[in-house]
Write a protein that binds this DNA or RNA. Structure first.
Length: 493
RNA sequence: GAGCCGUUAGCUCAGCAGGUAGAGCACCUGACUUUUAAUCAGGGGGCCGCAGGUUCGAUUCCUGCACGGCUCACCA
């Protein structure tokens, strides 16, 4: 810390007050304060509490001095309440503590009686005042709040102090996650935790972060998905498992991507992807109902109806509906499929097979049009290395993704439990890795051994929690639903 | 990774066809015993993101860099 003389005036003044307080024998960083009520409780129960003695604690957010009587606002976890000090009701030392020594932002405890001012504001008439924590830096502006998004993310605590809507968003996030846990536990799912550090990062197509274990002298990867471990648990006999935890992907940052993000994955033995569709509909609509009180939500001005059932459409149908291209007609002819894609303006590479082309056309031409909830079924096998092939159509898989507001919200499939087929899929992925595709799956021999012991047929589902929270809180950026999104470090003031 | 835009007081923002900067809130001093964006009077506070260049002179024009935002690419 710089020398006191060099401190900014605003910081210097507060530090001087701190020293004065100490000189007066006031402890500026107090301990336990036995508060009796939250601000909101007093306001909600005024009829019962009028004239009652209460103690509240919180941050001093405003002060309006009128000579020998003064008002202030104290904010606690429930909201703000007005406090009133009058010389005579409190001794001169207490009054001057409030008026001279306290600053906006200080955390205080006050005791007094509840009353209503003549303008009708429910207020605590203070008898006792205690400083619990001195605030040495000025808070952001009281009216406009903190707008600079850089500062809001870097100093999220300030954002939370001065922007109540931000606070609400994160409370809603917590409620959503709790509702998901309740929903799954009610249905017999067991919550588990699987490794975040993995020797072979699998379960998704993504570039991993690399870290190093010193004692074992080995590189490890931060997981890109828990999938392959959760499936090992199916092998082990857990029949309904879920995990809500972080995934890490070493990719770009955008309004829809943070390098670490929260994912729900669940697996249900003896089920398939149709069961997963039913479960997904029920889960999201139930969570919306429990948390928001409605299944009709507005996202960025668009009204979405989340009550089931949701539309179900195969990828082939969706592509035909939105582009006029019937990929069934190009079956077995990769070149024809590529030509058709180029005709509608989709860039494809020479090596792209029928299924890869179909997927690209879908992503570029169809996804953006999927506003109301829709399950897109039957993904090509090339882009679904962990999903079971369709019995009657082995070029496709029993896989769906859920789209809402043009965003992929969920991804699910009937899990591939044939170890021979799984090995071949890994080998195909390996070829793509060798061809330079850094996101192709790595071979996971350990996982294959597990499959060889027999994994029950199962449905698996993944839901991006951050994106679901964005949808349900009307947040335009993923950074609005992650408390501390990744930022480049910056020199501190 | 690319393109566009931004960075001025603690915060929210003006401003500058190039002549060494303003407002509101916050802060300091004074007045005020039911105010609430309290009010009134006075005052202090700025490497105008950083580094170069052009110029008699740059916060302003040019270049580079840093950080951020948006769009695109990659993805969930």
């Amino acid at each position: 810390m710089r020398l006191e003389e060099e401190l900014h005036e605003l910081l210097r003044v507060r530090r001087e007050k701190l020293e004065e307080l100490k000189a007066k024998g006031v402890e500026p960083y107090g301990g336990r304060y036995p508060r009796t009520h939250l601000a909101a409780e007093i306001k909600e129960n005024y009829a019962a509490l009028e004239g009652a003695e209460v103690k509240v604690a919180g941050r001093l957010m405003a002060r309006r001095a009128h000579g020998k009587a003064s008002f202030g606002n104290v904010m606690d976890g429930s909201g703000q309440i007005q406090i009133y000090l009058r010389l005579g009701d409190v001794d001169p030392a207490t009054y001057s503590l409030f008026l001279e020594d306290l600053d906006l932002g200080d955390i205080i405890g006050v005791g007094g009686t509840v009353f209503k001012t003549r303008t009708g504001e429910i207020t605590v008439a203070v008898r006792e005042l205690r400083l619990l924590a001195k605030c040495l830096r000025p808070l952001p502006e009281k009216w406009h709040g903190l707008k600079d998004v850089d500062l809001r993310y870097r100093q999220r605590y300030l954002d939370l102090i001065v922007n109540p809507a931000v606070r609400e968003t994160f409370i809603t996030r917590s409620r959503i996650i709790r509702a998901i846990r309740e929903f799954l536990e009610e249905r017999g799912f067991l919550e588990v935790e699987t490794p975040m550090m993995q020797a072979v990062p699998g379960g998704a197509a993504a570039r991993p972060f690399i870290t190093h274990h010193n004692a074992l002298d080995m590189d490890l990867y931060l997981r890109i998905a828990p999938e392959l471990y959760l499936k090992r648990l199916l092998v082990g006999g857990f029949e309904k498992v879920f995990e809500i935890n972080r995934n890490f992907r070493n990719e770009g940052i955008s309004t829809k991507h943070n390098p670490e993000f929260t994912m729900l994955e669940l697996y249900q033995a003896y089920a398939d992807y149709r069961d997963m569709m039913d479960l997904t509909e029920e889960l999201i609509s139930t969570v919306a109902g429990r948390v928001l009180g409605t299944t009709t939500v507005t996202y960025q001005g668009v009204t979405l109806e989340l009550s089931p059932p949701w539309r179900r459409q195969t990828m082939l149908e969706a592509v035909r509906e939105h582009t006029g291209l019937d990929f069934n007609a190009f079956r077995g002819d990769d070149a024809l499929a590529r030509r058709a894609a180029r005709e509608v303006g989709v860039e494809v590479e020479e090596g792209d097979t029928w299924g890869a082309v179909l997927n690209k056309v879908f992503e570029e031409k169809v996804e953006e049009k999927l506003i109301q909830p829709v399950f897109i079924l039957d993904y090509p096998v090339e882009v679904s290395p962990l999903a079971k092939r369709k019995k009657d159509d082995p070029a496709l898989t029993y896989r769906f993704e859920l789209f809402i507001c043009a965003r992929e919200i969920a991804n699910a499939f009937s899990e591939l439990n044939d170890p021979i087929d799984q090995r071949n899929r890994f080998l195909a992925q390996q070829k793509r890795r060798q061809a330079g595709d850094e996101e192709a799956h790595m071979m996971d021999e350990d996982f294959l051994i597990a499959l060889e012991y027999g994994m029950p047929p199962a449905g698996g589902l993944g839901i991006g929690i951050d994106r679901l929270v964005m949808l349900l809180t009307d947040a335009p950026s993923i950074r609005d639903v992650i408390l501390f999104p990744l930022m480049r470090p910056r020199e501190l003031a």
